[in-house]
């Protein structure tokens, strides 16, 4: 520093002229302080950013964005082919997209859940959150919401690309919009279910690896098991068994929901009969909310430990 430290402190703005950093001492904060709602919103928004690696180190952005790129790529190709050939309808219905990219979706949910849940528990940061005004319940709710939003955005990104492509290709706008909105509804339920599964594993397994393996195992391996049961039951003309088996996994629940709530269909043994259809919707909601409930319980326990 060119100016000497003995330079007299002149005070006021003129004192800064020499580039000397004066210790202005401690400044108390007298500005506004938000209530619980504002704090929860801030935690939620930070969580959504963190799911995609934003606000974290550079390399933590690689996985979520690589998965997102892989997830959107087929949609871009579909749109390209559709416009090039000039098809009158999309080769793949909106809600069927998530079912065909289950591996990417499962990996995303499994890998990013621990970022919102395991990380705070593993590194002890949870005690700093608990020492702040927000309750443990509100904390868990905001975290779950952020994960569900991240997964929802992941599911919807390619669907949005296809929808915009369909509109550009001059397909029937009214029909496409109806299908798109129906896909949005089932995607919301799917995101809620996956956030609960991934969040719960991440909040129990402190090591990220265990949480990832647990979630991937449940989402991918479990899906395979249920799909095999459904396939066999279809072969044996015992569709009812397959329908019931489908209630035990988020992806087969999703396939059933798609059948019930949209025009599309990719379920092996779709729910038949009004009672079974209602049951699929109820179980999906219960899985999402039940998982969330267990999460809240887990954090309430943590807070009073």
């Amino acid at each position: 520093m060119p100016s000497s430290h003995t330079e007299p402190r002149t005070g006021g703005p003129a004192g800064r002229a020499g580039g000397v950093i004066h210790d202005i001492g401690y400044r108390p904060y007298a500005g506004p302080r938000g209530g619980h709602g504002a704090i929860a919103r801030s935690l939620y928004l930070t969580g959504v950013r963190n799911v995609f690696g934003l606000g974290r180190s550079g390399k933590s952005k690689i996985l979520p964005f690589a998965l997102l790129a892989l997830n959107v790529l087929p949609a871009v190709i579909i749109v390209g082919v559709v416009t090039f050939i000039g098809l009158s309808s999309l080769p793949l219905a909106y809600p069927e997209y998530a079912a065909t990219t289950t591996i990417l979706l499962g990996t995303f949910a499994a890998a990013q859940g621990p970022i919102l849940f395991s990380r705070d528990l593993r590194h002890g940061t949870i005690s700093l959150y608990l020492a702040r005004p927000l309750s443990a319940t509100a904390y868990a709710l905001a975290r779950w919401g952020a994960l569900a939003t991240g997964i929802f955005a992941f599911v919807m990104a390619p669907i949005l690309v296809m929808y915009l492509g369909a509109l550009l290709a001059q397909m029937d706008a009214g029909e496409q919009t109806t299908d798109f909105l129906a896909a949005t509804l089932v995607s919301l339920l799917l995101a809620g279910m996956l956030a609960s599964v991934s969040g719960l594993f991440s909040a129990i397994a402190l090591r990220r690896g265990f949480a990832v393996v647990g979630t991937i195992g449940t989402i991918l391996f479990g899906y395979g098991v249920v799909a095999v049961i459904q396939g066999i039951s279809l072969e044996q003309d015992q569709e009812r068994v397959g329908e019931i088996a489908g209630l035990f996994h988020p992806m087969t629940l999703y396939a059933g929901l798609v059948n019930v709530l949209t025009d599309a269909d990719n379920a092996i043994t779709p729910p038949t009969g009004a009672a079974m259809e209602v049951l699929y919707v109820v179980v999906s909601v219960l899985l999402a909310l039940g998982g969330l409930g267990l999460l809240l319980l887990r954090y309430r326990r943590l807070a009073t430990r």
Binding site: Y29, G31, P32, R33, G34, G35, A38, I39, S42, L43, T46, L128, Y129, R132, P133, L134
Partner: peptide, 8 residues
């Protein structure tokens, strides 16, 4: 953490 205490 400052935001978690309500600061804008």
């Amino acid at each position: 953490m400052a935001q978690m205490s309500g600061l804008p």
